[in-house]
């Protein structure tokens, strides 16, 4: 008797399930996207994004938008598991708990990247600023990965608490600061065409954050979902 399904197969099954459900309802994606759009509109009037300001704040505006929209995605994706008690369904299956973590994490990452892929051209269009930049894409990938890594862990905790959606940003944002600094500084560097030596420390910071939080979240996930 095989003790359990192969690791990658389980990760893929969970990811596939999230994608299939989302393709049907598009709740999560449209929620994140519309929210992101609203944040950008609000920024426009709150900060008067004229040409001079834009150069310095674009990176900050983008990342604030992504991170805020991201919490909506995280809550929604975990709520789907808790809705009909499905988290128990996952736990009853003979799969490695880490596979559950990586399956959910990759789903969250994917939705986030999807929203970002739509927001970027839209921002370029609205403010006539070219954001088609390989370096920026790399930063977005690294930043979103770290966000999804720690976000998936914290969302699976907040979803089991009474205060749920209120709790997630409160738990998440204080530990996100290094990611904000790294992502904003590195994106800003690429957008303003800064020298590689100026950007590199922030890329390193992002990479460090990703490695540390991916491993600790993976280690702690068991304690969050198992009784």
């Amino acid at each position: 008797m095989k003790p359990r399904a192969p690791f990658l197969q389980s990760v893929w099954a969970i990811l596939w399930k999230d994608l299939a459900a989302e393709l049907r309802s598009r709740e999560l994606f449209s929620g994140m996207f519309i929210f992101a759009l609203l944040v950008i509109v609000i920024f426009n009037f709150a900060m008067e994004l004229d040409v001079a300001t834009r150069r310095s704040v674009t990176a900050g505006v983008l990342w604030t938008t992504f991170f805020f929209a991201g919490t909506i995605g995280l809550s929604r994706s975990m709520a789907m598991e808790k809705d009909r008690g499905s988290l128990d369904g996952l736990l009853l299956a003979p799969v490695d708990r880490a596979a559950i973590y990586f399956g959910k994490m990759l789903g969250n990452l994917l939705f986030m990247l999807l929203v970002e892929a739509l927001i970027l051209p839209l921002y370029s269009f609205l403010y006539n600023q070219n954001l088609f930049n390989g370096g920026l894409f790399l930063v977005i990938l690294l930043g979103s990965l770290g966000y999804a890594a720690v976000g998936t862990l914290l969302a699976s905790m907040s979803i089991q608490a009474r205060t749920r959606d209120l709790l997630l940003p409160i738990l998440l944002f204080p530990v996100l600061l290094p990611l904000v600094i790294g992502a904003v500084k590195a994106s800003g560097g690429y957008l303003s065409g800064a020298a590689r030596e100026e950007i590199l420390p922030f890329l390193n910071l992002l990479l460090t954050y990703d490695v540390i939080f991916l491993s600790i979240s993976y280690m702690l996930f068991d304690s969050v979902i198992e009784e």
Binding site: Q9, K17, A21, R24, R84, D88
Partner: peptide, 24 residues
């Protein structure tokens, strides 16, 4: 259990296929 442990946005077949994969 009294909770169905199913996903509302998947079809009956997809729900079972998903769990079938988890059980290998």
């Amino acid at each position: 259990s009294h909770q169905t442990l199913l996903y509302g946005d998947l079809t009956a077949e997809e729900n079972l296929l998903f769990y079938a994969r988890l059980y290998g």
